[in-house]
Design a protein around this nucleic acid. Structure first.
Lengths: 215, 215
DNA sequence: GTAATAGTGTCTGTGAGACACTATGGT
DNA sequence: ACCATAGTGTCTCACAGACACTATTAC
């Protein structure tokens, strides 16, 4: 039996969700692009989540602020080596931090234009994207796709990109005003070529919040 | 490494969610009540879901109309035998069908009054109940807790028990009227001591449906 | 008739959606 | 001055919530 963890690390780039891929160093599928993944090491790993975090850090250099189990894929046909279990996870990070810490070899690809990937990685990514889109309708999940400081327009844009819908500016701001964890940074503004925008940040240690109603 | 599947099989009995437990036939925790579970058999099982379905049928005699992966628990401290992976699932069934097919030894316990269980089974059940409650706010999941034919009052009661809230009769019926898959059974009524109630059924092959708004 | 449950009709307050409006910077 | 983006005010229609009402059985 083969036990692995795999991670779908997503970020927002040029208004599209992108996924982190790596060239596989070993067979099977040596040299092909695939999700970052590794065997579970019972001696070192506390649990699968810990294994995923460690693997991601070691292989990509990236530590994601949000990492959660996605689904466990299993069966005899998904890996040529035999019956396997993959405990998959998904993670989110802003592009800025990603670029800063990513090791050489990290490849970003738009989730809408993926080539055929080894194993069932296309299915895994598809499920991750669905989960993120769905969870974003009733939570603060998209906040993890933004850098520490951001404007409300950027926050709205992020939600719009993830959800694939346009949101009303007025209504969106009324909503965000109720979120206590999105706080104004006093005095800080982002000056563009036009009227500067107030900068905001997520208060303290970004907890994921769920809402009764949708965004 | 130990790989198992475990199933949290839930049913509604006396207006409370109950979980199916079995006395363990083998060590560890031989003789203690625990969730139905078994090792994965790569030679026989297509995947973990298939393993869960087969295990449930063999150990309890029950085939549930709804079975879905819940979460994969893992680590070195949850099983005295060593580092383990448990791919847990949850399932729903109506009490009537359960009683009819359940083998001897099947024990039903209210999820609100559980004793301490082996492994991390209390945590697993807690997560399953949370998942069911949450998913029930925006889906037809509770329909799987009802027999093939039911009245709207029974359907409402089921939602109320699962969600733990009281629902307005008028509003609930307006909602259900929009669900095309809940269909009136022409001529069939359930006579109690008072005005008989129209019987309904789930159309064809009960697909799980999700709603934009809550129930 | 009464009791009890099934099932329907109606009013109201809230809030989502739409959209117009004002504000403030650069050039 | 004008443009572009930031940010606010307001109207309306739909619907959730509340609750009263009618319907149909047993006794």
């Amino acid at each position: 039996m083969i036990e692995t963890v795999d991670v779908v690390l997503l970020t927002l780039r040029e208004e599209r969700l992108h996924v982190v891929l790596l060239k596989r160093a070993r067979d099977p599928f040596k040299g092909r692009l695939a999700l970052p993944g590794a065997y579970i090491h019972p001696e070192e790993d506390i649990d699968a989540l810990d294994a995923a975090r460690r693997m991601l850090q070691q292989k990509t250099g990236i530590t994601s602020p949000y990492l959660e189990q996605l689904y466990t894929f299993s069966g005899g046909s998904r890996d040529p080596r035999g019956w396997s279990i993959s405990i998959t996870h998904y993670a989110l990070i802003d592009t800025e931090s990603l670029i800063k810490s990513a090791k050489d070899g990290v490849v970003l690809m738009s989730v809408d234009e993926l080539p055929g990937l080894p194993f069932d990685h296309n299915r895994v990514i598809e499920m991750a994207v669905k989960r993120v889109r769905n969870k974003s309708t009733y939570s603060t999940l998209p906040c993890y796709l933004l850098p520490k400081e951001f404007t409300l327009s950027e926050l709205q844009k992020t939600y719009e990109c993830v959800l694939g819908v346009r949101l009303d500016k007025s209504q969106f701001r009324r909503r965000v005003a109720e979120w206590s964890f999105v706080e104004e940074i006093p005095g800080a503004v982002k000056g563009g070529t036009h009227r500067p925008a107030q900068l905001y940040r997520i208060g303290d240690h970004r907890p994921l919040e769920l809402f009764d109603r949708s965004v």
